[in-house]
């Protein structure tokens, strides 16, 4: 169903960007004491790759995403998008956060229009908002306010709000973390379909190994804080993937082992 909906949707000119994370370290000041969160992280992402970042809770994955988005500056190291240094946020790198963080005073349509409005191109490109809402299947909710939406619908709106900007890198910070398991599975399929269709580079932070394996073609496993790259695993399986695939089950066991959970799984 999703695939047919996508086939009918409007096409944008889009392609992913390459992302280079070079020897990045970062730390927080908490009451005067330095808390290191990232330690010498280097990752090189090809254009159009779907990379999942997996690691224990609180290890600094989300911090890395904020650095990629340009919301924070790293203490050391460099981040580059298509060879260009990342210094500040740019709509070519859009984040979908764990909470949809829709603006409650704006209707669904106005929320999705946010990026175009901020860049001053809403007047000429307003039809992109409708196209993005079609893409996530919420065209009939354009006039609803966020409080009238379910959790899954709100997260779809957040996804549309990101996609309307035609990002080169889509940054997903546990976007499905708070959804029920059924909505989650549906939206995982939708995300894969969107990614295949648009070709943007995707970074997904998750702590669900299965989700990482079903979605990504590369899984990077982080250590405990301060996060270091522990393993870089290529997932060479065609889409749509099956959760019961023995190859994926094997990888999953391997990843959980890296995370220190082999005794129980």
């Amino acid at each position: 169903m999703v695939a047919t909906a996508l086939a009918e949707a409007v096409t944008y000119p889009a392609a992913g960007a390459a992302l280079d994370i070079e020897q990045v370290s970062h730390a927080f000041d908490i009451d005067g004491t330095e808390l290191p969160v990232l330690s010498d992280v280097s990752i090189s992402v090809e254009p159009g790759e779907f990379v999942a970042l997996l690691g224990p809770s609180g290890c600094g994955k989300s911090t890395l995403l904020r650095l990629v988005a340009g919301l924070d500056k790293p203490r050391a190291g460099r981040l580059r998008e298509d060879e260009e240094r990342i210094r500040r946020p740019h709509p070519s790198r859009v984040v979908v956060f764990q909470d949809p963080t829709l603006f409650p005073w704006r209707s669904v349509w106005d929320n999705v229009a946010l990026g175009l409005e901020a860049q001053g191109i809403l007047r000429s490109q307003g039809q992109r908002v409708d196209a993005a809402l079609d893409l996530v299947g919420l065209a009939s909710f354009r006039n609803a306010y966020p409080h009238q939406l379910s959790g899954g619908m709100a997260q779809r709106v957040a996804l549309a709000r990101a996609l309307v900007n035609d990002p080169k890198i889509l940054i997903l910070d546990e976007p499905l973390g708070k959804l029920d398991s059924l909505t989650r599975i549906t939206m995982q399929a939708e995300i894969v379909a969107l990614w295949q269709r648009k070709g943007f580079t995707t970074l997904l932070v998750t702590h669900d190994a299965e989700e990482a394996l079903v979605l990504a073609n590369r899984v990077i496993v982080f250590s405990e804080r301060p996060a270091r790259v522990k393993a870089d695993i290529r997932v060479d399986r065609p889409y749509p993937r099956h959760r019961g695939d023995p190859y994926l089950a094997d990888l999953r066991r391997q990843i959980l082992g890296l995370l220190g959970l082999d005794a129980t799984w």
Binding site: A69, G70, L71, P89, H90, P91, R93, V94, V95, F97, D99, T101, F103, W105, R106, L114, G115, E117, A118, Q119, R161, N165
Partner: peptide, 29 residues
């Protein structure tokens, strides 16, 4: 006003004037 709103607007390309007029003020209303 929650920082998350500003983060969202900034990643979508908002300038400071947009953050004041379209984020801070409506949220504070």
């Amino acid at each position: 006003v929650s920082n998350a709103y500003y983060d969202v607007a900034r990643t979508l390309g908002a300038k400071p004037s947009f953050l004041v007029l379209k984020v801070a003020i409506p949220a504070a209303l």
